[in-house]
Design a protein around this nucleic acid. Structure first.
Lengths: 236, 236
DNA sequence: TATGCTATTATGTACTACATATATACAATA
DNA sequence: TATTGTATATATGTAGTACATAATAGCATA
């Protein structure tokens, strides 16, 4: 008879981990808000009974996402985090596992399909004109490189229009992944077709259409990518 | 005459920053892949001509997103990053700026609206049955707390069905924000109405409908939240 | 008033020493 | 032989000290 031996994961947290939690707790309990000044590293270290080293390691994580800002003599201040700031630099498609790449590629498609409501909520006449200008650029017809550039510019503008900075940063972060995956697809010989619905078509919908219609248009525009997903799925 | 004095931001990167870049470059150039063993801390420090301290600070950032894993005597190995692992712990709505909270709340709505294609691509008969079971739970009728629980369980299952781990983790990460924002809304007295389309309605669409129909259903289901966005927008 | 100097101070970096955990090998035991 | 115990080597984890660096504030100076 074999019993289940999975007793306990028993993950002992490192000092830095625990310090991280304690600092977070401290900030919450004392109702720190963005802009507030934080205690000095030494004070934290002494209060927690650990070396300044460990405190710095914990603080480094906060710094990484912009949650604390440090200036030389002035000390540290709490800030509203910018989650993607730190990650952006480390996102190297070449190093990542294929599954993660695939996940992020899909995530981008998902978000793009969901933007519609926010866009219609915030778009101005000027936005539409600018989008039209981008979409009308004849570079579209020439090389594949230029087409990719326009692709990025057009869709980037859509994110900007939402007025959601976090969202915008998020898509900026995903850009390298997107490009990388596309390039790999091209290398593997699958021809990346253009969708039936062009950027200009999308602009037309923005002029007089509904969020719902825009979603459908966007789906058609992205259809080649969705078809790609479908093919991969069928293989399994 | 006033000239433009904005010469240069002149952001001097810290040692740790530069070490971070160098290590990343090193990994890329040598085609490191997830699972590969990395050089020891001391080796890196000596090779780069910096203290082990600085190397550790840089490595700490990699560790934070699970990009390197360290074991005691064995050293470090490169892994595929899990971006949200490190961030998850630090995401404390109480501390964040309202704008960021609002951004993340919107982001969740956006993703939810965009899930449709992935769901239809992956859903199984069993998934549908489980969703129906969740949606049929009578707790729905009772307290607001139970309703929120079901809400989380139902939507969480939708993410799982996509088979996209990154996406699933992402929504898990956003959960506290979502709950927090909802609670704040309730405190402020705005009655959080239920959408016209219920979870059971959504299940029906999954049974025989199309991705497009599901998107529209989801919009109706989330409509109270979108209306909330609209109200805020109108105030400006 | 504007500039230059100086002292102060909190973070940034370096270095050393030791603690801790674990892979590996080998011995001991049944 | 297979399992368990023991020893050792080793890379990371933590501590502590010292100094470098940058930025603030105050005062002095032109």
């Amino acid at each position: 008879m074999t019993r289940d031996l999975s007793l306990k994961p028993l993950q002992t947290l490192s000092m830095a981990d625990r310090v991280e939690l304690r600092i977070l707790e401290f900030l919450k309990n004392n109702q720190f808000k963005p802009g507030d000044a934080m205690p000095k590293e030494i004070e934290l270290a002494e209060a927690l009974g650990v070396s300044r080293n460990v405190v710095r390691e914990a603080l480094g994580r906060f710094r990484m996402i912009g949650m604390v800002e440090t200036k030389k003599r002035r000390g540290m201040t709490l800030q509203s985090p910018d989650f993607f700031k730190g990650i952006e630099r480390l996102l190297e498609p070449e190093i990542m596992a294929d599954e993660t790449l695939e996940d992020l590629f899909q995530l981008r498609l998902v978000i793009e399909m969901g933007l519609s409501e926010l866009i219609f909520l915030n778009i101005t006449q000027q936005d539409i004109e600018e989008l039209e200008k981008i979409a009308s650029n004849p570079s579209n017809a020439t090389s594949q490189v230029f087409r990719l550039e326009q692709e990025i510019e057009f869709h980037g503008r859509l994110y900007e229009i939402t007025g959601n900075k976090t969202l915008y940063r998020f898509q900026r972060m995903l850009l390298p992944v997107f490009e990388y995956v596309i390039q790999e697809e091209i290398k593997l010989g699958s021809d990346v077709k253009k969708g039936q619905v062009t950027h200009l078509d999308l602009v037309e919908i923005l002029k007089s259409g509904t969020p719902s219609a825009f979603r459908e248009g966007m789906y058609q525009h992205l259809k080649p990518h969705f078809d790609g997903l479908k093919r991969k799925q069928d293989k399994k």
